[in-house]
Write a protein that binds this DNA or RNA. Structure first.
Length: 473
RNA sequence: GGCUGAGUGGCAGAGUGGUUAUGCAGCGGCCUGCAAAGCCGUGUACAGCGGUUCGAUUCCGCUCUCAGCCUCCA
């Protein structure tokens, strides 16, 4: 079998993955700053790295997956003042909301979820080391800054040189800094702001240092994989490397993974542009699994354009897979089938979920053919399909649950009422009263219920009325 | 200005130096009372211009277009 290859942002190449400790993988992902609801961009990070972690486990690795929560920063303080809500209350509230969104998307909780505010001691001791090593200094305003010039390899991750960068491009140059690209490690508190005691007075940690401290604390000075969104490449991850390597004297991370953005109309979805959809909003119209499928239907490094059309397609695609699994009892196939081999090959190629999913569809096609011809063989194929779905976190419901659930559908008719209608129609069919039978079927269709006759039986599934209406006739 | 990445059939989206991606939509057929689902068949896609090659969508160069980063951001 082919070996797992991962695209490393540090080298801009796909590299064969070799863990530091045989059989173990240490994975750190930058998590949310919890002052608002998750948007679809956050959903992408959560889903992508959930799949990374699941697939590594599928390959037999013992995975330690850490994803932090940033629960103190300027935006949190601003929001808590605005909402007149204690900042710990606010962050607790949105942490809970995030966990709900994750569950909706079938994202498994990481193994550890450290909080920045629980890591203040580690942060302070790391800053002390940096000052002792002359990588950091206390500014005239008592803020502590990291000196980018003190770190020889600064810019290695983002591929830029200090000389090439435009200081003051967006933000006014801060005169407390020796170099405009120096960044804050410890920020002095203004009156009324939440703060912790430190050798430099009351204050709070800078954004970048918390991740260095938490990752090092949970996974050691040197670990396997660090992930996050593209936009964190610079400055956040660049700064993490500078801090951690200067503080520990060791290499920080072997493999850096960055996922592409979600876009709306070919423009980055972001809070600052205000063009974002929250997971909560989208879940009103679509099931979590549909969002998940949408995310996985393109490669994690590609841009992902969000649209209702895309979500509708994801729904149709999932319907096809679940339909294939109807009326078949999946059993574990102990032989390595060609599907599984090709699935693993796709996933081994930098987690190519889009390609992996295409193998699932080929498998579904064969399953559909075998269901009537050779049920035993069909059961094995169905087992393969579910085996592939596992590390992708898909197809974890029963076909009936998915196809008949009203979650994300806009039809309101009850299951009982549907059964009543179906029975009436069966009677009409028996009477060869085709007009009545068709009338009942059409009426149900208008309510988002599609009937399917199979011999003397009738099965049904729920679809979106809105989707039906927008489909070209 | 510096640095990345991308341009594939109606849409979405993989991939490859010569052979069907896959899904949705379309068209023809089978099945069906009629449908739906499913199955079978069906599309002369690879931004443009040069170059390398027996052969390029795939490699190289240039051009055009788009997106991202250059201390808010996943």
């Amino acid at each position: 079998m082919s070996a797992l290859k991962i695209h490393n942002t540090l080298t801009k190449q796909k590299e064969t993955f070799v863990p530091i400790n045989k059989g173990e993988v240490s994975l750190y992902v930058c998590g949310m700053t919890v002052y608002d609801f998750c948007h679809i961009g956050h959903a992408r990070v959560m889903v992508v790295f959930d799949v990374v972690s699941r697939y590594l486990k599928y390959l037999g690795y013992n995975v330690k997956y850490v994803r932090n929560i940033t629960d103190i920063d300027d935006k949190i303080i601003a929001r808590s003042v605005e909402a007149k809500e204690d900042f710990t209350q606010l962050t607790k509230r949105f942490t809970d909301e995030m966990h709900q969104d994750e569950a909706s998307l079938n994202v498994l909780p990481p193994d550890l979820e450290p909080l920045a505010t629980d890591s203040i001691d580690n942060i302070i001791s790391m800053i002390e080391k940096l000052i002792a090593n002359n990588n950091a200094y206390v500014g005239p305003n008592n803020d502590v800054y990291y000196s980018v010039e003190s770190f020889e390899n600064y810019g290695q991750l983002s591929g830029r040189k200090l000389d090439d960068m435009n200081a003051g491009e967006r933000v006014d140059v801060d005169n407390n800094k020796r170099n405009p690209f120096d960044f804050v490690l410890w920020k002095s508190a203004k009156p009324e702001e939440p703060s912790w005691t430190s050798p430099w007075g009351q204050g709070r940690p800078g954004w970048h240092i918390e991740c260095s401290a938490m990752a090092t604390c949970c996974l050691g000075n040197h670990f396997d994989i660090h992930g996050g969104g593209m936009d964190l490449q610079f400055p956040h991850h660049e700064n993490e490397i500078a801090q951690s390597e200067a503080a520990t004297g060791e290499r920080y991370v072997n493999t850096w993974m960055h996922n592409g953005f979600v876009r709306i109309d070919d423009e980055k979805m972001s809070k600052s542009l205000g063009n974002f959809f929250t997971v909560r909003d989208v879940l009103k119209k679509y099931r979590g699994e549909e969002i998940r499928f949408f995310v996985l239907s393109s490669h994690y490094r590609s841009p992902l354009n969000y649209s209702d059309e895309q979500l509708n397609e994801s729904r149709s695609a999932l319907e096809r897979l679940y339909t294939a699994l109807r009326d078949v009892k999946p059993i574990q196939n102990n032989l390595q089938s060609d599907y599984i081999r090709r699935f693993e090959e796709a996933m081994n190629d930098d987690f190519n979920s889009a390609k992996a999913i295409s193998v699932m569809f080929e498998c579904a096609n064969e399953l559909n053919k075998l269901k009537s011809l050779n049920p035993e063989q069909a059961s094995l194929i169905a087992g393969d399909l579910l085996k592939m779905a596992g590390p992708l976190g898909l197809l974890n419901q029963s076909p009936e649950e998915f196809l008949q659930s009203s979650a994300g559908a806009d039809s309101v008719i009850s299951n009982d009422e549907i059964d009543v209608q179906i029975n009436q129609r069966l009677q009409a069919k028996e009477d060869k009263n085709w007009a009545l039978a068709d009338q009942i079927r059409d009426a149900l269709k208008e309510q988002g219920i599609i009937l399917e006759d199979k011999g003397a039986e009738t099965t049904w599934r729920r679809v979106n009325v809105a989707t039906l209406a927008t489909q070209p006739q």
